[in-house]
Nucleic acid binder design. Structure first.
Lengths: 169, 169
DNA sequence: ACAGCCATGTAACTTGTTACATGATTTT
DNA sequence: AAAATCATGTAACAAGTTACATGGCTGT
């Protein structure tokens, strides 16, 4: 529900049209998660269906401007007021992959770990490079920092897996 | 696509029926991500549609046993052989939330950070407690360790956010 | 004239997820 | 006999995602 709520938050600053929302979303989160413009419109329609936003008249340039409703504001407040629980998070594909590699037949777990580490290392280099390039925008900077912190944690976990699997054998 | 591939990996050890698959999946990943039994069947049907698995005759007890196909084995090998890229990962709701809190009007970002930290701290305590309880199973242990590493990284990131936001103001 | 961006929207599809119906077997 | 567990399956929906159709406006 990240996109729904993200758009809601952007609309809390005032009415916006679809293209504008994508621009502002990407300005905040950066190149990390590009947002398909089509998805903005599908999401807006569903939010309209759920009473969170309301479309206004088309403006001079024929653009349809959406406004956040009272229900929308309430939902946004609920979102910001409630922390994200562990159970809310999606299944982590990498973790499942390693767990299943341990269980599966004819799979070299150590090799899976090594390959992932190489990829994550490379990603980390890209991220630090990207970070040097971005000087504007607090949000964008924090998003990048989060990616870096997570990649580092992944790296540490992969090392840990290697160590545990080595002494298991 | 974690569940699809997870089931595929479990089936690589030999034919299994739905209930058995859920059992083995949860035995590996533990209580972290409980798997609804209905989902096992929907996923198996879709995998059958895609030619990754094939249902056999019902056995003596009337249980439908699924077998992995050659295509299924190939897909599994591809999965294990290809590392997970940054772009494959789902949007991180917490990161989006903070980025949007910075952008939104009338939202106390610091408060959002504080609340999340309390929740994450509590989760971390639960996780370390759970870790002491689990002595069996390498996979289950690694899954828990991953959760812990991630929660710690999140905690560090939240601290970092607080620091950055403080000097911004 | 045409390339390229601004702008909107829809159809189609995927995976994840749950609620529910149904019955067999096992335990208390 | 009742409760719990084993076991299978379906219907329905949400959310994410992309490909495509359509048209206006702008700069070269």
């Amino acid at each position: 529900m990240s996109i729904r709520h993200g758009l809601l938050a952007l609309l809390s600053r005032g009415p916006r049209h679809g293209y504008q929302l994508r621009g502002e979303f990407e300005a905040s989160t950066g190149a990390t998660w590009p947002l398909n413009i089509g998805q903005v419109y599908t999401t807006l329609s569903r939010m309209e269906r759920d009473g969170l936003v309301a479309p206004g008249e088309s403006d001079e340039q024929g653009r349809v401007v959406y406004t956040i409703t009272a229900d929308g504001r309430a939902e946004m407040a609920r979102w910001f007021g409630t922390p994200i629980a562990q159970s809310d998070r999606p299944r982590d594909e990498l973790v499942i992959k390693l767990a299943m590699a341990v269980a599966a037949k004819e799979v070299d777990v150590a090799e899976v770990v090594r390959r992932q580490r190489t990829a994550t290392m490379r990603a980390l280099q890209e991220l630090t490079k990207a970070k040097r390039a971005v000087t504007q925008g607090t949000a964008q900077r924090l998003v990048l920092d989060s990616m870096i912190f997570q990649a580092e944690a992944e790296q540490r976990w992969l090392d840990h897996c290697e160590a545990v699997l080595k002494e298991e054998r």
